[in-house]
């Protein structure tokens, strides 16, 4: 089996390319995705290979891009709209929430919305607010949407292919901080990574640490540092945030009895609260310490001078995990 060493953003491109070859109904659209290959180069070369009917440059109109995609999906195509930054998605929020998420149930299954909205999310690139935010919880809160966040190039391609083939709408959030941070072997062939399944990145018996996306790497680094102190972390990368892999969460927590959650989104209303509730509901009698939430602040994403404080750092994650273990 042939493979290439790809970055995460190259794996996005590879996944799109694979599905565009497989299925002529797959159509990419968005701002500068065609001739320019996307602001992050995620669609590089696709316009030349598949032409302007399948890789569509749109005006700056997010509500129009997503709304049109929903119509395309209802018609029978498989649109993959790109929103340039997650913080630009709000003009399209109404279309995603009021229509994409509800088309199937509203029409009692007669209409479906097989659409993947791709958007780079998250901080660490020294840009303010809309260019750095991480608001996955908005979409997880809406029934009828699937929400996926990969953390490795291999998973990116496999999850993206699954998302494109999924019969329902998927919000596919890409951790732009690690778009080019490292490479990994990615098979040239098509393969899928199933939606809704978490991955245990590091097995351990002392404490479960749940995370996703760009935070997975810093969490792994913290876990290795703590191993030197004799704290054995189990790191679970959730990969899909909706539907959540409750079984994986509960199984890990039953083993360790202690948990921390690391996410860069603000704390209040973030997914860490939901994960805490899951372990309370399903494994209360195993619980030996409060769940620690290691998160961004309840503020708009700050400019660079304060960004290093806002984002969970290796040191802050270590501290949080120590709190749980030493409780």
């Amino acid at each position: 089996m042939s493979a290439q060493n790809l970055t995460l953003v190259q794996a996005v491109r590879d996944g799109l390319h694979t599905e565009m070859q497989n299925d002529e109904d797959v159509i990419v659209l968005g701002e500068d995705v065609g001739k320019n290959g996307g602001v992050f180069r995620a669609t590089e070369g696709l316009y030349d290979e598949f032409g302007g009917d399948r890789v569509v440059d749109t005006p700056l109109a997010e509500a129009g891009i997503v709304g049109t995609s929903i119509g395309m999906a209802a018609y029978g195509l498989r649109p993959v709209p790109e929103i340039q930054f997650m913080g630009f998605i709000y003009p399209a929020f109404d279309q995603i929430i009021s229509h994409a998420a509800r088309l199937r149930t509203r029409s009692r299954g007669r209409f479906t919305c097989p659409m993947v909205v791709r958007a780079p999310y998250g901080g660490g690139i020294r840009a303010p607010e809309h260019h750095s935010e991480s608001k996955e919880a908005f979409f997880v809160h809406e029934p009828g949407l699937k929400v996926v966040i990969p953390s490795t190039p291999y998973d990116t391609k496999g999850l993206l292919i699954s998302a494109v083939r999924d019969p329902d709408p998927v919000v596919f959030l890409e951790p732009k901080l690690i778009y080019r941070a490292f490479r990994e072997e990615v098979p040239d062939e098509e393969y899928t990574v199933p939606l809704g399944e978490a991955a245990v990145r590091r097995e351990g018996g002392d404490v479960s640490v749940f995370t996703w996306g760009a935070m997975t790497r810093v969490t792994m680094e913290a876990a290795e540092n703590l191993a030197a102190e004799g704290v054995d972390c189990e790191v679970v990368d959730l990969r899909t945030l909706s539907p959540l892999d409750r079984d994986a969460v509960v199984e890990s927590f039953r083993k360790t009895g202690r948990a921390a959650v690391v996410h860069e989104a603000p704390k209040t209303g973030g997914l860490a609260g939901e994960l805490t509730a899951i372990v309370q509901e399903e494994a209360l009698l195993y619980q030996e310490a409060p769940v620690e939430r290691i998160t961004g602040f309840d503020t708009p994403y700050p400019l660079y001078a304060l960004e290093d404080y806002y984002l969970p750092s290796v040191a802050r994650i270590e501290d949080g995990i120590r709190n749980v273990v030493e409780y």
């Binding site: 701002e31 602001v39 005006p59 700056l60």
Partner: peptide, 11 residues
């Protein structure tokens, strides 16, 4: 230009 796309392709 709207970002990288010429105005006549957007309107």
């Amino acid at each position: 230009f709207g970002e990288g796309t010429p105005v006549e392709e957007q309107h």
